Amino acid sequence: MPRFLSHVVSTVGCWLLLAWLPAPAALAQTKPAPSAPPESLIPLPQPSPHVVLQHAVGLTDIVVDYHAPSVKNRVIWQGLVPYNQIWRAGANENTVITFSDTVRVNGKKLPGGKYSFYVMPRSDQDWDLVFNRVTTHWGAEGYNEKDDVLRIQVVPEASAHHETLLYWFSEVTTSSAHLNLSWEKKTVSLFIDTNVQARVVAGIEKAVAARPNDWQLLAQAAEYLVQNNLNGEQALKYINESIRLQDVYLNNWIKARLLASKQDYDTAIVFGRKAIKLGEKDDTTFQNQLPNMRVALIEWQSKAY
């Protein structure tokens, strides 16, 4: 083959080879991608399920947010939960307790807010229950005593077996409750007092100031104070103004009861009889209340004479 034809064939062959080969980018795309850990596609139950417990005590909302582990035949105290060490009082991240307003816990003031809750159990001493301002730790990791807002001592009580850790409320009233933590065969309790009466009285004063000519609001305010034996002089002012604005059986009966609570039975009888006289026969509320009104009048008469 002539030399120039050999050169042509060689050159054409190179061009054909280059045309057949993929571009560098294409070569790069053919490399296997690095393997990533597979994501679980199966919904699985948590070993320590998430629990949110909410309860209103008076006008205060209390929320306990925790994860609840189970005993599972394990030794809990001085086993899974060592003595003399801070414990997250649950599983996983912090147990968090939130108060919408300032409360007293076992008689000690705790401002409203969100707190991590910890327990330090002991074998032969009272246990420490701790409210800490840092709520972003994983359990007790990073816990610092300097961030404690309140630390109180309680005596743990023996209890029936609780397989799963449980927070629960008991002895709930309009102003207080016990918050309990039970697990295995021990329970610790906190007494929470919300001082609801001071908040209600402040709310009454604010509402009356905004609507001073609302006879029903004034009667309602006086009624609450009478029922709870609070600020009798202020209750008398409210009910007198209510009667001045609208003279009906309801506010007269409230005044009668207020006077009876002050042991002024003679005047209470006068307003009690007036309330019955003002009552309307077609008023279902009045008719339902009438038997009790008559019984009260008889009682006041026996004390007056």
Rank of each mutant, 00 (worst) to 15 (best):
Ala56Thr: 13
Ala56Arg: 13
Lys108Pro: 08
Ala256Ile: 03
Trp168Val: 07
Thr267Pro: 03
Glu141Asp: 12
Trp300Gln: 00
Asp266Gln: 13
Leu53Ile: 00
Ala235Gln: 06
Ile192Asp: 03
Ala177Gln: 03
Asp282Val: 07
Ala23Met: 09
Arg273Phe: 02
Phe191Leu: 12
Ala207Asn: 05
Lys114Ile: 11
Leu230Glu: 13
Leu218His: 00
Val200Ile: 15
Lys303Pro: 01
Gln301Ile: 01
Lys262Phe: 13
Ile192Gly: 01
Trp253Arg: 02
Asp282Glu: 14
Val208Ile: 15
Ala260Val: 03
Leu258Trp: 15
Val172Leu: 05
Val172Pro: 02
Asp266Gly: 07
Ala296Cys: 06
Pro212Asp: 01
Val200Asn: 05
Leu259Gln: 02
Pro34Glu: 14
Val64Thr: 08
Leu181Lys: 00
Glu157Val: 04
Gln301Ser: 09
Leu236Val: 06
Ile204Asn: 05
Tyr118Pro: 02
Leu179Ile: 03
Asn94His: 07
His7Cys: 09
Gly203Glu: 13
Ala160Leu: 11
Asn92Tyr: 14
Asn228Ser: 02
Ser10Thr: 11
Val134Trp: 07
Trp215Ala: 01
Ser6Asn: 12
Phe99Met: 00
Asp148Thr: 03
Leu245Pro: 00
Gln29Val: 02
Ile97Gln: 04
Tyr238Pro: 00
Gln263Ile: 06
Leu27Asn: 07
Ile192Lys: 00
Lys146Met: 11
Asn229Met: 07
Gly139Glu: 05
Thr284Ser: 11
Cys14His: 07
Ser302Gln: 14
Leu225Gly: 04
Glu145Ile: 10
Gly142Asp: 04
Glu280Thr: 11
Tyr305Ser: 12
Ile97Trp: 06
Asn144Ile: 04
Asn252His: 15
Glu280Tyr: 06
Glu241His: 14
His55Cys: 08
Val9Arg: 08
Asn180Pro: 02
Leu17Gly: 10
Gln287Arg: 13
His137Ser: 12
Ala221Asn: 04
Leu259Pro: 01
Ser189Lys: 07
Ser170Thr: 13
Gln85Glu: 15
Ser175Met: 06
